[in-house]
Design a protein around this nucleic acid. Structure first.
Ligand SMILES: [Zn+2]
Ligand SMILES: [Zn+2]
Ligand SMILES: [Zn+2]
Ligand SMILES: [Zn+2]
Lengths: 152, 152
DNA sequence: AAAGTTATGTTATATTGTAACAATTATTTT
DNA sequence: AAAATAATTGTTACAATATAACATAACTTT
């Protein structure tokens, strides 16, 4: 993610596509679910569940942990967000349309999380899995370090 | 990991090498630390911190969460174990001698965790990181699915 | 409208992990 | 060996993350 970009388009795209996919799939993008998705897309940082809980309370006074975790479960099932395993946190998926594996680059300094498709990595990984005769159901590749903007 | 193998050699190798490396490095493989390492090596499953706590209590009656987490911190710093981020759990490292990245294959059925070096994957990943101008400090690649033994 | 399904409210609790300070043990210096 | 220093462990308290279970409400289908 470049340090400066028109982030409102990121958010708009994500919300529009999510709404569209929900319609197509016959599932409900309820108010709570949409609000959580919007809060996750506030920036390109990974967000923790209890931070989301605090942030949604002005909008949903009755919100409890289960409120958030249920919304997160839904958004994950639909592929709208990813869980960052190594942070116990969540980020918006940058490509809702195509199912894909996630390579996450997590910057220690600015805390941005960049999602990349990294086809060559996935290809090499597929070969390695074949060698191991391992049938993959889900893959998480998470790299911690310094992003391009923070190493200049 | 083949379903049937002489596991006592896995454990012996790990403990012997750990003891040797601690001597070389001038750090202490205390009783508690060695016991935790042994408990982790009980099998090739990932172990949770509080399971370790229960299992060490017969040996260390005074054991508390901090007891376990401190030992885990030490063992991780020394590279004797890995944390499985997607499980909040820990496994013994199968190659103490050479520093290396971890590709973990986690079987949903038998729960075995196999660690592979996967040089080709790491090479492709290094290229991708260069493209992204990202300086990696740590890498976690965790694949969930079915292992060779469990797909037959 | 009634029945069935999906989503939310609510309470309680389980799981995972740290902070802080005291006491002890090991190592180094005098 | 004694004293000083550093490393480890004991202990208490609590923070952070996540789920279970059951009641209520809101949508969908018949
Ligand atoms: Zn953006
Ligand atoms: Zn950065
Ligand atoms: Zn073994
Ligand atoms: Zn298996």
């Amino acid at each position: 993610m470049p340090e400066i970009h028109n982030h409102s388009t990121c958010v708009q795209t994500a919300l529009t596509q999510a709404a569209q996919l929900c319609t197509e799939r016959g599932v409900q993008l309820t108010t709570i679910r949409q609000q959580v998705l919007e809060l996750i897309w506030a920036d390109h940082h990974a967000v923790k569940a209890y931070d989301l809980l605090e942030r949604i309370k002005p909008l949903q006074a009755a919100a409890k942990p289960a409120t958030i975790y249920r919304a997160l479960d839904f958004l994950r099932e639909q592929g709208f967000i990813h869980r960052v395993e190594s942070l116990n946190a969540f980020i918006g998926c940058c490509d809702l349309k195509t199912a894909h594996e996630q390579l996450l680059l997590i910057c220690k300094k600015c805390e941005n999380v960049e999602e990349r498709h990294a086809d060559l990595v996935m290809q090499a990984l597929a070969q390695e899995l074949q060698k191991a005769k391992f049938i993959a159901h889900s893959k998480a590749i998470e790299i911690h370090g310094l992003c391009a903007d923070c190493t200049q």
